[in-house]
Design a protein around this nucleic acid. Structure first.
Lengths: 246, 246
DNA sequence: CGCAGGATTGATTGCATTCAACGACCGTGG
DNA sequence: CCACGGTCGTTGAATGCAATCAATCCTGCG
């Protein structure tokens, strides 16, 4: 089983959390011809204004969605982790309204978007799972809006750290105790949080001084998750993770 | 034809912009039993944590989605105008992750969410239209994130003014020349933009001083839309309005 | 007339930005 | 093996945008 099939299993497992899927559904997914692709960090997967013809799932690595202002200031609007679906929005919208860029080296499994439309019309349960997935993404974006609009820099950063850890841990068995790696530069963190890299640096130090996190390069250890969640005002409800078969 | 049917027509017209609908689809929608409801300004339609059983369309009036921080600071994450669908997200997610509150006095047409699920499974074209609608909402939220994260207060406000005008004008024939009414207090504007009401006030004055807007109470006149759009960095792409039958 | 909610103004504070320099790390090539 | 360059992280000082605090004005309305 190559990494592409692993992508399929990962996708199936993920969709199963959103809707009750059958072995028929599995077969349906399996029947879709998939093209595997590897991308280097910072490569673009989609650019704003494009009319994407394909749709992909992240098998490994990380990416993000971004939008740019006229002056070229960047806002990262979403982090994408393994199992996340790229370009689902272009299932029913033509033009892409944002960029998708690789955060790390990554592999994806690509599918023609027309075929996905076919799958969706044939299998209501897969459709429901994909739809739910896009709704969760919208919910996450709303939470980010609250984060940027009404939380200070320190809380914002803590919140992102909590979210990232939980979303990554949900994919496969990550071990909390040894910490986790946040594969972002401080500049990218700033772009995700509406801050400058300098200020991100200072707030990370502040969190570390207070014993909420420990840092070694980009590897983070969190001695006390409850404490971090508290300062982050983190409530995982918006991730809708326990939504099996709603 | 009472206001409820008017709601149906409005909905049908709106969905038609997202997908090709037939008279059968119209009949399907018409067959769904609808309950009409009137709400006073500031009444809650949904509260975070609830498990909504119904789904509604705005027939008249305005509402907004909001989220609160632990300290009670509010972030408005979306404005809802006539024709917008409430609670579509609870089609496939159980718990609501935010509040919906009436901005003005308003009327809505409510439907059991189970029935909507049925409609969606029977009519792929309606499903597609509703799905597309939820994708557009997500796109709007992303643009708001860019707005809060990377634009200054003045630009932010101008951007909101542009978006609101366009979205409202798309519903029915609003006449630009006489201006339009923005039914929000400056405090609510601040909560939508991540600003304080005081600063909103000053920036509105600044826009007015520069001749970009004129104000009489909450009625706005825009002498030069192009100029306002320019200072707002407004690009309507993210609204996906010309997406007929993608 | 008086009240209440919202709008406006002024003075002050402060969080985050900006600008600039320096330091640490890492892969590369001589 | 070490010099080199580039990217990223860190630090300091100065600036500025928006927040805060508080008072006053306006307007619709009972």
């Amino acid at each position: 089983m190559d990494q592409c099939d692993a992508g399929l299993d990962r996708l199936f497992e993920r969709l199963s959390k959103r809707s009750v899927l059958t072995t028929d559904d599995y077969a349906t997914l399996q029947a879709v011809p998939v093209k595997r692709r590897t991308l280097a960090a910072s490569q673009y997967l989609v650019r704003e204004g494009q009319l994407p013809e394909r749709c992909g799932v992240i098998c490994s690595g990380f990416a993000y969605r971004q939008k740019l202002t006229v002056e070229g200031n960047r806002q990262i609007t979403m982090l994408l982790v393994p199992g996340d679906i790229l370009d689902l929005q272009n299932l029913y919208l033509r033009e892409s309204d944002h960029d998708i860029q690789a955060l790390t080296r990554m592999t994806i499994a690509e599918v023609s978007i027309d075929l996905v439309r076919g799958v969706v019309e044939r299998s209501p349960s897969i459709a429901r799972a994909l739809w739910a997935d896009s709704l969760v993404e919208c919910s996450i974006t709303r939470e980010w809006l609250l984060n940027l609009g009404r939380r200070n820099a320190r809380t914002r950063i803590a919140h992102l750290l909590c979210e990232f850890q939980i979303r990554v841990a949900a994919v496969d068995g990550y071990d909390d105790d040894v910490g986790y790696e946040l594969p972002m530069t401080q500049e990218q963190l700033g772009d995700a949080l509406g801050l400058t890299p300098v200020h991100v640096n200072r707030m990370l130090q502040s969190l570390e001084r207070d014993g909420l996190i420990q840092r070694r390069q980009r590897r983070l250890t969190v001695p006390d998750w409850d404490a971090l969640r508290a300062t982050a005002q983190f409530n995982p409800r918006y991730l809708h993770m326990s939504n099996a078969g709603a």
